[in-house]
Amino acid sequence: MQPIIVYLEPWEFSPTVLITCILLIAAYVRGLALTRHAGGAVGFWRPLSFFVGLGLIYIALQTYFDFLAQHMFWIHRLQVLFLHHAGPFLMALAGPWDTIARGVPRGLRERVFRPIFGSRAVRSLYGFLQHPLVAPLMFVGIIYFWLIPAVHFTAMLDVNRYRIMNWSMVVDGMLFWWIMVAPLSAQGHAKLPYLTRIVILIFVALLQIPLGAYITFRGSIIYNVYGICGRAWAINPMTDQQIGGLLTWIPPAMMCAVNMLVILRYMLHEQGGRPSAESTLANAVNV
């Protein structure tokens, strides 16, 4: 039995991931402290949701999990579930951006971030990416793209493409779930009405299902790269593919259903005299 530390060490250490996580946590914690100092409510569920979401992403990228994901198709699908679905979903549910912005030192915020994020180019790019037609198509498109057999083959062999794949999942997940799951009160001027969101979620769920079903029921091996490089442990390749197919099929559809529940919750609460975003979120996380 190897010591547990072996499983917690990154398989391929990435300073980018580590620094990004540390900076996000630092800004978020500082933002929380400043909020509390100013007499604002910090809550419990919101920060928990943020940290669990970020934690899932970190674990999927920078532990032994990453090794397994490189050498077993179904664990790769589980990794995608963490990076593209559960992790960003939980982070977005916490509606963390105001808190993070508050936690960034004033000089940096005013002189660097505000000009960048306020610039026309960034705003129009963001507006395009978050367009109610573009965002869901990109969300589903990215899943399909990396599962094209020839693309998947190169992504699993080339370290750089593998990194691009994982980063694209995280960034796209953050963009998509932010407009889906954040309460209207936290979305600023880019508000997306709740009913529009529900329609989008139904489409996204319906578009993912055929892909998962295809992988699950296909009678031959689609992704041979795992056989070429060797699987992490002895498993029937068909079983590996079927579990991977199910993971592509069921949990993502479930996530859309959970998101709809969160939205219903928002709608119910906002009908009966708008409560604070805080308690709505606490309830939402409690679902």
């Binding site: 699993m156 056989g227 060797g230 699987r231 992490a232």
Partner: peptide, 24 residues
């Protein structure tokens, strides 16, 4: 470096063990 895996099984009573490795 070449993203391949190999594992060594537990030795049996005669000290033999199976090894699995990539086929590439």
């Amino acid at each position: 470096r070449y993203r391949v895996v190999y594992t060594r099984g537990k030795p049996n009573v005669r000290g033999n063990y199976a090894v699995s490795h990539s086929s590439a």
